[in-house]
Design a protein around this nucleic acid. Structure first.
Lengths: 189, 189
DNA sequence: GTCTATAATGAGATAGAC
DNA sequence: GTCTATCTCATTATAGAC
């Protein structure tokens, strides 16, 4: 039944096309062909092409946020939460590269004019707040919160970007332990 | 006289327009207005619009590569070289944000079809090779070269991206010491 | 709500004088 | 090498039947 909801069909097609060929290289007729939904219906539901990108972005961020919240509930210690997030980033990159690509590039892809940059969207805020918690519990060196979050997750995000760009051939999950080792050492007391 | 070279004028205008509004939101007539060079002349020199982006990208990477080579010659120790590169990234971000933005986003901006991803271009290769040298001199933990490079520079690059996105308000140079502290601890023996 | 057919715009690219 | 004027065409978006 989710297969018959035109909004879902369009977003699904858009995720693939936008992330593989880019937003500007994807025309509305392309979306029509890939989704099986008509031009009129797309405009009726999303207003314009940017509306599709916007709705898709909201879905993607929402999805990511839920995954991070699950981690925050399961894992108690700060380092465990951080490691779980790195693993999550890697798993999503491997299993749903289009989703990860869209989330990371959407802001820089020159559309979605007035959406806040991804780094200030809620999943990334959560990452910062976890690291910040680590400072309160004296597990993480006292320092600027943003710098600490960048230190912990920057390496992993960099690897994700390289993997999505095809620079890294191997499955990212094989690097989890090494990456985590570096990430935690960079800020741990 | 550099002000009269049409190629330089076009690239200069393109750097600003592409990085501020994006490649696809910049038309050739926009380039004509901003550069003062005519349509015919632009097509004569660059072939097509993508040719402008390509030539600009080459200039930017070349420029970055020269800066990193200078560092490799001046600073002898591996950690000093790494720190100098982080400082370089921050200085360029502060002084020439358009240049840094273009270098980081060009590949993901959905054009420049067959250019290698930025992470495999020569400045980034040089970063990896410096870290790799650190392993030989036993200053850096033995581990995957790519992971180590991501650990050392990932945090800094993340901060650069956030600064360019307007998420960070303060001058990045004020973070150099903290960033360097984290970066080096993450891989140092 | 969904569809087909169509309009209107503005883009990339070219022609050809100078 | 540089310029102006122009062509061609794909794109976004709308109209209006069902």
């Amino acid at each position: 039944m989710s297969k018959k909801d035109p909004q879902a069909l369009v977003k699904q097609a858009a995720l693939q096309l936008f992330s593989e060929q880019g937003y500007f290289n994807t025309s509305v007729p392309d979306l029509v062909k890939a989704s099986g939904v008509s031009t009129g219906s797309i405009y009726h539901h999303f207003g314009d092409k940017e509306g599709v990108a916007r709705a898709l972005f909201d879905s993607v961020v929402e999805r990511m946020q839920v995954a991070i919240e699950e981690i925050q509930q399961k894992h108690l210690s700060v380092p465990e939460q951080c490691k779980a997030i790195i693993e999550l980033l890697f798993v999503i990159t491997e299993n749903e590269p289009d989703l990860m690509r869209y989330m990371l590039h959407a802001k820089h892809a020159e559309f979605l004019s007035d959406v806040a940059p991804i780094c200030s969207s809620s999943p990334f805020k959560k990452m910062r707040s976890i690291v910040s918690m680590g400072m309160k519990t004296k597990e993480v060196h006292e320092m600027d919160e943003t710098v600490a979050a960048a230190a912990v997750f920057g390496g992993a995000i960099r690897l994700v970007q390289m993997r999505l760009d095809g620079v890294i051939e191997k499955n990212l999950l094989s690097y989890v332990d090494e990456v985590w080792f570096c990430a935690w050492r960079s800020v741990a007391i």
